[in-house]
Design a protein around this nucleic acid. Sequence first.
DNA 1: ACACAATTTATAATATTTTTTCGTTTAATT
DNA 2: AATTAAACGAAAAAATATTATAAATTGTGT
Lengths: 260, 260
Amino acid sequence: MSKLFVTERRHKIMEILNKEMRLTVKRLAGELDVSEVTLRSDLKEMEKEGLLRRTHGGAMLPSYPGEEVSFSAREKQNKNEKVIIAQQALDIIKEGQCILLDASSTALELAKLLKQKNIKLTVVTSGIYTALELRENPDLTVILLGGVVRKGSSSLEGILGSNILDQVYVDIMFTSGNGFTFETGLTDFNVYEVELKTEMVKKATSLVALMDHSKIGKSSISSFARTDDISYFITDQTLTKEQYNNFEKRNIEVLCPVEA
Amino acid sequence: MSKLFVTERRHKIMEILNKEMRLTVKRLAGELDVSEVTLRSDLKEMEKEGLLRRTHGGAMLPSYPGEEVSFSAREKQNKNEKVIIAQQALDIIKEGQCILLDASSTALELAKLLKQKNIKLTVVTSGIYTALELRENPDLTVILLGGVVRKGSSSLEGILGSNILDQVYVDIMFTSGNGFTFETGLTDFNVYEVELKTEMVKKATSLVALMDHSKIGKSSISSFARTDDISYFITDQTLTKEQYNNFEKRNIEVLCPVEA
DNA sequence: ACACAATTTATAATATTTTTTCGTTTAATT
DNA sequence: AATTAAACGAAAAAATATTATAAATTGTGT
């Protein structure tokens, strides 16, 4: 097998991990034919991005809410940022609309806020936990898309369930992702999830990106929306003038907290 | 079996403990293939986290002061009946099949058993918790149907998601319900859930009813399967000769526990 | 071809996990 | 209560895995 690029290798690691749910550094080294040191640095990076959980000797899929394991510290830390983003997103939503939420944790935060509101909405989502959260509020009609469910992901995957989308008219889609650059648009790493997200983006009249500042300037493996598709870009920190201008040039409305 | 990670091992310990309610260090050492010392340190840690209570030679589930015996006993009783039914259902399933599970708690028990098996299957379900349970096992391809999610129900409702069913070939459907009589067939009370179940029944090559004895002879508001649709009827108590003959007459195979 | 940067590897020092050993404690039995 | 076998805890030893650092490799641009 020819040498892989870093990105390709990490992609492969995720593939293996998704299939097997666990992996050892040793086996990986044999399989991918690189040194263990290299893989450890891969795994370290990937853990920082929340793609997996490191253990001695290997790595496992991260555990998600709903499982008995306690939340990782990282989850909790980023929560504030997600709430800040979700609160701003609320302002865009109007009574009676039909909105689409992906399975991201930011959209889950938005769902938690919606649960407490007195506003009639139809919400379509690909996130299982998002749906479970929203159903608590009887003002909301909650539709969960169908598809493949896999360990390590609370999202539905694949386009099996996308024909539900043909049966509803969607005003706004709220989505997050693993990275955003002006060139690549919104990107994510799970190919199957991206497959579904791409379909979701197509259906939405307007697209709202929910991206915390750490994701700006990064890009992941596969893209599910071009920059031109985006109508609103919501983030948790004030942007640089240059970034701001770039958004303005493309007619994208930016929402971020006012200067502290 | 390859060496487990610490996390995995402790997870397994909890699994065993939850099932057996008690465990000995010695047996664990044999089962998990690590030294007793290692396990003792595991148990010590886990006790600190409140996951279990240490004893000489082993560990037990922690007992909570306010535990109400009556309620939990009754719960368990009901659960046992479901487990008895689910275990019999297992025998019908063959490697490589595609099965359909509804959102009933009996089907959820079946899912829990399947989670522990080493058998490759495709499982399509309308139960959210059923899907979450099954995804833990990588041998299983889990497909969740889409649809409306409502408060108080962990089932998907309505036929929105039923076109996923057109894309898979289903060998067996396992379903429960609120009532069964020979005249009305299988019945349930939630009309929207029934709407989806009806579609599911149509798709399955063979239909297996999972009904505890208390439901036999009762009938609910709407029917989702005629008696003639049923291939197997699984229950938790021995039937009367009359009931048995009635099933036989219609060519329905009955599975129930052998006389005590 | 050269220098520069990025990536990967080798190696050695650390750190973690597991087992072994052994004296002590506990529980069961006489 | 004395005896005995099993279970325990502490600490050293062994086995693995990780990190840091420097060296080697590869790719890039000039």
